[in-house]
Write a protein that binds this DNA or RNA. Structure first.
Lengths: 336, 336
DNA sequence: CTGTTAGCGCCTTCAA
DNA sequence: TTGAAGGCGCTAACAG
């Protein structure tokens, strides 16, 4: 089984023309007679020629590739986001290289470096740490158009597209309160990520504004297990609150599971809301009332922002927060 | 903001040596005095030099990249699989380019072509159609080491790593039967994929072997919605079976949701099992008894198979089916 | 309309 | 130990 690929030279030789002519013919340039073009195409086909994008990329100074670094590919939220990103990039002729940082700053730095060395035309990154990701992300942004997605690094001058966490939390709290909740607790991600910080701050702010009782919230990681352990923490503290606002759908799912195992009814005893609007929300029982992220808009805006920066490296930084919406389901009480 | 990257030439000029020396120094070759090496490293650092993998790749005839084509990135099953693949490849120094075929044969063909043109060193593919994917996958396999994952194309001479679907279905059926089920129905993917075919065949075989009553099974797509519609179909037909074996966790989740909405109790009235062992199984209520795929083993074996084929294009084709396990949870009856 | 030539950035002989 | 030179595959500029 031979594996060495056919090159322009070989096609040229077989077709009895120069490699330049082959290149022109195959790329649909007009300075070629249609007879020649046809002949070349035929020979190329017969030989199974495929353009070598490495060669072309070296020549052109770039391949049409975009990179994206996410904390955990297996998280449905990022799966959905990547899905949409791939779609929008595809449409513009870009391929997507994906890298998993495992939520680890070192690894994130490694992956970003790899993308730079690969000379990708742009990078999307969901920074794993609001502070510690600074150096790697900043350095990368200096070298290649970069857009932060979903999360951002503090005080980093760079584009960012994400959901409006304030509005999301506000939607959730307003909803459970309208359904009769007084004591509302937040079970969410810690301050490691910008998302965790913002949702926490938004929650605390709205609790104050509404003069709701100050509860001791629970913070941890965006994992199913954290949702479960958080409920144990709450149970150990005393009577459960009227509602639990979870930091994301995964945590909410854990919360619901643990509540039911403890014999607590959802939403009769405790209402629960999620955040993200992933398919997990529809699988939960009862179905999860959740703050839905506009995945497709996020992906589109992020792509546009990246393209803008590629076109003009000096354009002002974009910092867009898209409005989420609330999808009401069974995990919160029926309207009074 | 300047974006043109620093090259070996510039480092060489700044360091007052030749580019060959810079190359050697930066790649840790021994034919360089440590004094020079140190100096070069320092200058490179100061200039912010980053190797250009495109250039290196052209020279070397390859970049260290592997491509993977999956039907839907947003499906948690593929998310998990990709997560593991990335891990194993990372460890061997490969980067992973990921492409989404959207379950569409045309698009799949496009993406495979892109990977070939990119001169990736190997390709993993989850073929979207057991028959129609033949041409594109066969052509790709002719050009680059390729391993089929999870699904395979019929009669295609190529490596394949997947789960043992016979054993998986057998585990599920044996389990629900041991918990008292007599009438067992399969709600699974249609014959478009090899997985759908195999699970169906396995199910029909075990029903015969066990002399269980022949039921009319329901086939569709691996989607939450299909699970729901399948239940409607079953309800319209008459009395529900004792157990529903779902083709994957997503379908099972839909089945459970629809059953409960119809006032049917799970597992008291109908037992339900899933397939894959994704996080969805843990989010379902009741928790889903499911056939767990050995994700990490699959990824490792697939990586090994690919490396083997890269080393020896003529080595015999590997066709590995890894044993799944059953994770028993609440969606099937307690042991009698 | 077609061929020749010159690199893109890198690494690796081959000389010195 | 270091430098000079060639060439990976491709395309664009320049001749013819």
């Amino acid at each position: 089984m031979k594996r060495a690929s056919v090159t322009l030279h070989e096609v040229a030789a077989a077709a009895g023309v120069s490699i330049a002519t082959v290149s022109r013919a195959l790329n649909g340039k007009d300075r070629v007679s249609s007879r020649t073009a046809e002949h070349v195409a035929e020979v190329a086909e017969r030989l199974g020629y495929r353009v070598n994008l490495i060669g072309r990329g070296l020549r052109a100074g770039t391949g049409a590739t975009i990179g994206v670094v996410v904390p955990v590919i297996s998280n449905p939220f990022y799966g959905e986001l990547i899905h949409r990103l791939e779609d929008h990039l595809q449409r513009r002729g870009f391929d997507l290289v994906i890298a998993d940082s495992h939520g680890d700053v070192e690894r994130e730095s490694d992956r970003l470096r790899m993308l730079v060395e690969r000379r990708v035309e742009g990078v999307f990154v969901v920074p794993s740490d609001a502070e510690l990701s600074f150096d790697a992300v900043a350095d990368t942004a200096r070298r290649v158009p970069l857009v932060q997605l979903d999360r951002h690094v503090l005080d980093l001058p760079a584009d960012f597209i994400g959901v409006d966490n304030d509005e999301g939390i506000e939607l959730a709290v307003a909803h459970v309160v309208s359904r009769g909740a007084e004591r509302v607790v937040l079970v969410s991600g810690n301050d490691v990520t910008s998302v965790g910080r913002e949702r926490r701050a938004a929650f605390e702010a709205t609790v104050r504004t509404r003069s709701l009782p100050q509860e001791v919230n629970v913070f941890g990681e965006y994992l199913l297990e954290f949702g479960e352990s958080a409920v144990r923490t709450l149970l150990a503290r005393g009577p459960l609150p009227d509602a639990i606002v979870a930091g994301d759908d995964l945590v909410a799912a854990g919360v619901i599971a643990a509540l039911k195992r403890a014999g607590t009814r959802v939403p009769e005893d405790v209402q629960v809301t999620g955040f993200d609007g992933t398919m997990l929300a529809d699988v939960c029982e009862p179905r999860l009332t959740t703050v839905v992220q506009p995945f497709d808009d996020l992906a589109r805006e992020a792509t546009e922002a990246l393209v803008r920066r590629m076109d003009d490296p000096d354009s002002p930084y974009v910092l867009r927060r898209l409005a989420p919406s609330l999808r009401v389901a069974e995990s919160t009480s029926p309207a009074p």
